[in-house]
Nucleic acid binder design. Structure first.
Lengths: 123, 123
DNA sequence: TGCGAAGTTTACGTTTGCGTAAAGGTAAGG
DNA sequence: CCTTACCTTTACGCAAACGTAAACTTCGCA
């Protein structure tokens, strides 16, 4: 059986994802993640860990913390508020943005191929 | 014959790309673009226009202006300095970053599909 | 029980990417 | 010439995303 860790300290996660504890606390200030407390110390569970992954993914794509919060809030809102229509709209908007990024990436990767070929041809 | 415009004012480009003139001047301050001058006024040619497109593409992907400058400088350096090896390294690094972003995008798009399906199933 | 490592809050500092006046110069039409 | 639209430089302002320092507290263990 592979033992799955279920509890993490702030520095556990910081080390794992190569960021600082300060950043994680900052995400908490901005309400993107809300670990439980044991006394005064922060305790992160697997759900928190996944959230952090989502945050970092969003960051790599250039989204602001506010945008990432919006995306994260999409999950966890499922059904409750009957804002389904609004959620679907948000998803559409986000999807368009991601598709644009896809185009941009493909364009740049192609350009890199061309440039690399040129450089290699240069003997 | 389709007439290709070959000269643009700063507000021409600003309008075309939906940004402010201030931004374009800022990119110039940061050495990402260097239009010629007619007297005191900036004149942009097609090459400058393409550069601006590259800048905006980079921005949509979350690159900093400094990183975009690095990427842009890849072009235009071809061959001259015999830094070919260094250039190929840079391309590799950038390519890895773009591939990571590709993964991130695909992950999120898939998540959106799942979420959308759930919302629609909710009757 | 007394370290040392790690955690906590508070708060000011820094960088990036422009926004936004202020104060004027320039080009073209009437 | 004069107005109007657009351009210029200079410079301070500001929000976002942390960095960093200060000044404790808490936990594990020797």
């Amino acid at each position: 059986m592979t033992e799955e860790k279920t509890e993490y300290s702030i520095s556990d996660l910081a080390k794992e994802f190569g960021i600082t504890s300060r950043s994680i606390r900052h995400y908490e200030d901005e309400k993107l993640i809300t670990p439980t407390r044991r006394g005064v110390h922060r305790i992160y569970n697997n759900r928190d860990r996944v959230r952090l992954q989502l945050i970092l993914r969003g960051k790599r794509l250039g989204f602001s913390l506010a945008e990432i919060k919006e995306i994260i809030d999409l999950y966890g809102m499922e059904g409750e508020e009957k804002q389904t229509k609004r959620l679907l709209e948000l998803i559409t908007v986000r999807r368009e943005s991601l598709n644009q990024q896809l185009k941009d990436i493909k364009y740049l990767l192609k350009e890199f191929d061309v440039l690399e070929a040129k450089l290699n041809a240069e003997k």
